[in-house]
Design a protein around this nucleic acid. Sequence first.
DNA 1: AAAAATAATTAAAAATTATTAAAAAAAGAG
DNA 2: CTCTTTTTTTAATAATTTTTAATTATTTTT
Lengths: 224, 224
Amino acid sequence: MAKILIVDDEEDIAELISDVLSDEGFETCVRFNGEEALEIVEKETFDLIILDIMMPKMSGTEVCNQIRDKVDCPIIFVTAKNQLLDKLLGFEIGADDYITKPFTIEELVARVKAHIRRSNRVITNKDTITIGEITIRKNSFEVFKNNVPVELSTREFELLSYLMSNAGIALSKEQIFDAVWGSNYGEIGTVAVHIKSLRKKLDTEEKYIKTIWGLGYKFIKVVD
Amino acid sequence: MAKILIVDDEEDIAELISDVLSDEGFETCVRFNGEEALEIVEKETFDLIILDIMMPKMSGTEVCNQIRDKVDCPIIFVTAKNQLLDKLLGFEIGADDYITKPFTIEELVARVKAHIRRSNRVITNKDTITIGEITIRKNSFEVFKNNVPVELSTREFELLSYLMSNAGIALSKEQIFDAVWGSNYGEIGTVAVHIKSLRKKLDTEEKYIKTIWGLGYKFIKVVD
DNA sequence: AAAAATAATTAAAAATTATTAAAAAAAGAG
DNA sequence: CTCTTTTTTTAATAATTTTTAATTATTTTT
């Protein structure tokens, strides 16, 4: 489940948020000031961070600036000062969302869920992917090349699906193996065999599936 | 620049949003009902969609459900009905954000920018480094010189990646060796050989990779 | 200016990794 | 249960990369 960091100097509010999100099935972690937040961010990774703007010593914006390079997850700001909103949201800092006090806990939960859902979606959900001449439809387990159906076995399909979902990204053989076969499986060499059969069925010229020597494979992102 | 689709049956509101976002430098596209929205989404891709919930015939939620499989971009809902918020945001539909009428145009713009900024960040964060004519993309294992792809072996790529990540810093051969090969490895002389091949492939003039006598190497930080 | 130290350049050997085909094993269909 | 198809394993070959080591060139020191 998603792991959420809550940073707020008002301890009871922080705990409240934490409790509610825990009830919703999230794993939470609470810190009461900016310094502590920086520390924990160095050590652990989070799927989302909730950050109070107004904190003594180090403000939420400062914290945000310091971690933005290292951290990729959405950051939701909590603020009481409505008048700062424009500046806050649009420009200065790398916020992804904000919520103003007083807020209903339902709204916070809803926003958290929307962000988490989005993160998950970006990685996987997309039923149809088309790159160059090749199209796959995940729901129907179909593959087309130039709109002509191509028959693949289940494993071949899953492999292709994983590659195309991560088009443009160099994937190590281990990564592919874990994703398609699951980590405690047999020989990793089987990846190469399935790559071979995929190529044979729909990429005889090796235009789409590129070998990255010493690492693994990559499905190209755009066609020349 | 980012391309935004606005779907709202109240034509003046749709136009207003479109005008403001155009002023902010976004490319906009307006549709006045769900059917038209579905059509245009089939043909073009957008970076963000603003979707009114309350529309005759086909509601915003319906539209959202139908396009979610094909479309990956953030969707912001516009709604007047506060009471539906929880349901809206958290669960049923694949919304990424919502904004309630009446809203200030500033808030909408701010939210749009936050989403666009986030999308860009996820893609680029630390992934691409460009110095002078040379660009590397870590995720895709690609190297370009003047936008022309250059083929490197894995070791060469990792070496270049390390050098460019530490551009402007003098690195000892030992440092480089430890970082790229790992400390308990073979001969340190291999560093020089790989520097040689890097220079051969993309720095024949030795403009970028400088030798620091008695120490090691440095990738220049800025081009003259 | 010569000697010493360090780096650059090579080419060939060694090691690693990818490809391929075929056999074995497992899963599924009738 | 048997036959067929799919998947996995194996192993030999081919291709590529990395390392080694010897030579040449350059810089620094004396």
